[in-house]
Each structure stands twice: as structure tokens, then as C-alpha cells.
Design a protein around this nucleic acid. Structure first.
Lengths: 221, 221
DNA sequence: ACAAAAGTGTTAACTTTACACCCATGT
DNA sequence: ACATGGGTGTAAAGTTAACACTTTTGT
């Protein structure tokens, strides 16, 4: 047992925010403006003050660094390596959030911040241990997305069945038979046609669907 | 934004260690010897020093406060309420561990500590917010125990099929048909008979089984 | 008319459920 | 011989998997 060590630690929150844009799962990253790692990409987050709860901190990060409000998050993993931030012991608690791309388009307008949505298969070199944390979040994402209510957050309305199938193929890592997928998904009684069509793309236009108001929570796959 | 607040926080680790004794899932708790909450039960744990990793801290807790070694743990939830410890902001990171009851019987001999294994349906009044944390751990336990490798940690050898069924009935919250359960479990090809029988109980003695050496990771239920 | 993607139905294989009687042991 | 809990098989229902052609639209 060492004697002079302190029991005070610095904790930062990090947010792994995902969306789906035309069937592709993407994560929100910020461009780091200062050294160290200037120019690298990173997860949004902030240092936890001793007088605020985790939830309060997360809310503030969403408002000031992401430009969104009222996004529900799920706690993921606590990272505590001694050397994850050079010369400082900073623990990081990562949260996973989901937001639909329409909401993103409408609300997100933090002018002074350089951000980008990255395809989860094309994550750039990130600051600190954020590449590792991102991979961990993507892995946890799979457990989140099999749930019908999570899916509804990503696709509240006006999606095609193909887009949902694309998401499942990404998180499962293999292809699904279109006929079987549709039969199964429609039989869950979670969605209804909006009556609109997805025009403007090549090929036959697809029906657009929305999630029903009250859906029963359920795991697919 | 408040100004005078500090960015230094105290973090404690907590361990929710589970075992199964004759088909009953139990959790390991310590009796608190000092005020506040003197005499109440609590989860083992310790304050994290700034110069140790989470894993190092957990290892030490196992050795000094539980009397076991080399138990693999899985990180569960970080609790960050401001008032969870009176007058102090202490965050708690909870870990879930599994240990088979035979190992417990052999190794656990920390004389000076008053501990007890509690049936998870009969948790006593616990110190601080530990009742809440215990309930959270029990809920996370379900996700752990559906996995074949976790089950193997609880039952390395000399268990009856009925004991496994009991565990599943507890985590699922409903009864299973004995015939169907056996057929399914045996068909997984995870276990083999030891050749011994579970004598000394009323009724016909049950066959004893052990998990095979190399089993494929798989989720049941 | 061709390219592109949407939409659709049937059958076989597999998995899950429901269900009742006999067996081995101790008292 | 009775009480206790272990061990077993079969059929029906439900789910999943495999598989190919037609439709709608834009060019």
C-alpha cells in the first residue's frame, strides 16, 4: 500500500452519439482545436464537477457541444487506465445516445464547432484513447439496437424497410434475406405505412413507414 | 455555470459477488462495523486511489475483503448521485463477479470479517444506497447468466441439471418444464456426466454433471 | 428496352411447447 | 407402501430459412 497517493480523481463524461443516414450508421465527432492532439477527432464530453450529477453534465454537453436537447442516453463503460490522458489520471464514463437524422438536420447549428458524422466503418484517427472508446461504444450499440424502442429513436417516421434492414445487417455483420426480414419485421406490429413513397432514387420507389405511437418493447434478433 | 466547484471526485469500487448454493442464487455482503450505518450490510469495495487502475483496486478488494483470488469481474454501472453518501460526493462503480460455491467453501477464510451470503430474494437493509445498487446488479446478472461461459464459472463441476434449471427459473422469473429444459440444455453439448450421483437427498439421486473443457460461448434464452 | 431497387408466397427444416408416466432412493 | 424428486418421448404449433420471379420507376 502506497502512502502518499490521493483519493481524488478526475472524471470526464464522453458521449457516443449515433444516427443513421440513408441506412448507414454514423457517429458524431468533434475536431479538437487545441494541443495535445490538435486537429484530431474526439468524442464530445466534459469534466465532471463535484457538484453536478452525471445526468446534468450530459445534458450540458448536449446543449453546448452537440447542439441538441433531450436526447436520452444509456451508460456504457467506465475507462480507468492510468495513462489514457498523458500525465493525468482522468477516468472516462462513456454514454451512448441515438438520434434520428431528421432531428439532427433541423436542430444542429452550433456554428463555432467543427463536427462531422462518421460512418462507423470509417472512423478517423482520434485523440487520446478515443478510438478504443468508440470501438467499445459500437460494440455496445449492438445490444442497444436490437431493442424496438431504440430503433424508434433512430427512425421515428418516414423510413423504408430497406433502411432498417441495412442497420441490422451492419450490427449483425451479415446479410439478411429481404423477404424473410420484411415478413418478420412487419409481423412485429411496430410500424405502419405513412402512405408516402420514397421518390427520387433509382429503381422502384419504396413505401415509407413510421413507428406506431405505442409500441411494445421487444428484442429482435 | 458555478465557479467555485472542484473537478476532483472520489470514486469507490463495489463488488457484487454472486454464487449458487443448492440452486439458490446468493450475493456476498459484509457487515459494517463503524458508523454511519453500523451493523448494516454492504457490498465490499474500496476507494480508488489516483495511482491504481480499476482492475488493481478490484483485485485488492478480493484479496483483503472477500478472501478470494482471481475472480473475473464484469463492469456494471456507475452511480453518481450527489447524496448517495451523506455530505460527500462519492461515485461508485459496481462490478459483477461469479464464483462457484465449492471454491467459496475452500478458500474463504478471512477471520476478522463478518460476511454472509444472502439469497437474492431476501436482501437485508443495506448501508447507503447499496440496496439500490444490489437490485441493479441483480438485474444485470440476468444478462450475464444467460451466457454459457458465465454459467460454467458458477458450476464448474458436480452439479445436477435441476440446479441449473433452478438458476434459470430465478433469473427468468418463471418456471420451466423439466423435460424441455433438459432436452435443450443437453443438446447444447456443454456438459458431460461425471459418473457420480448426488446421494444423500430425498428422492431418487440425480446424475452429476461437469462442464466440458472447451465449450462454445453461447446465449441460452 | 434496360437498369435499379421494391415487393411478394410457399415449402422444408428446425425449435419450442405441451403434456404424463415410470424409476430410484429413504423412511 | 408411500413420499420425494429424477428421468424420459412424442406430437402439435410456431418460427426461421431457403429460394425466384414480377412490379414500378427513371433513363
Amino acid at each position: 500500500m502506497k502512502d502518499k497517493s490521493s483519493y481524488y480523481n478526475v472524471i470526464e463524461t464522453l458521449i457516443s452519439l449515433f444516427t443513421v443516414d440513408k441506412g448507414v450508421i454514423k457517429i458524431f465527432l468533434l475536431r479538437k482545436k487545441l494541443d495535445p492532439y490538435k486537429g484530431y477527432w474526439m468524442l464530445p464530453g466534459s469534466i465532471l464537477r463535484e457538484d453536478e450529477t452525471l445526468e446534468e453534465n450530459i445534458k450540458e454537453v448536449f446543449e453546448t457541444k452537440i447542439g441538441l436537447e433531450d436526447i436520452e442516453v444509456k451508460q456504457s463503460h467506465l475507462f480507468g487506465d492510468l495513462d489514457r490522458i498523458v500525465n493525468n489520471r482522468v477516468l472516462a464514463i462513456n454514454y451512448i445516445g441515438l438520434v434520428d437524422f431528421v432531428t439532427v438536420d433541423l436542430k444542429q447549428d452550433i456554428e463555432e464547432i467543427e463536427y462531422q458524422w462518421f460512418n462507423i466503418n470509417q472512423i478517423p484517427k482520434a485523440a487520446f484513447d478515443h478510438n478504443n472508446i468508440i470501438l467499445n461504444a459500437i460494440s455496445d450499440l449492438k445490444d442497444v439496437l436490437v431493442n424496438s424502442n431504440s430503433l424508434k429513436k433512430l427512425f421515428p417516421s418516414d423510413f423504408t424497410l430497406r433502411e432498417i434492414q441495412d442497420v441490422y445487417e451492419q450490427i449483425l455483420g451479415y446479410e439478411l434475406d429481404r423477404r424473410n426480414f420484411r415478413k418478420k419485421f412487419i409481423s412485429l406490429d411496430l410500424i405502419e405505412p405513412t402512405g408516402m413513397m420514397n421518390d427520387g432514387y433509382s429503381g422502384r420507389p419504396a413505401k415509407l413507414y413510421r413507428f406506431k405511437d405505442k409500441i411494445k418493447e421487444r428484442d429482435l434478433f
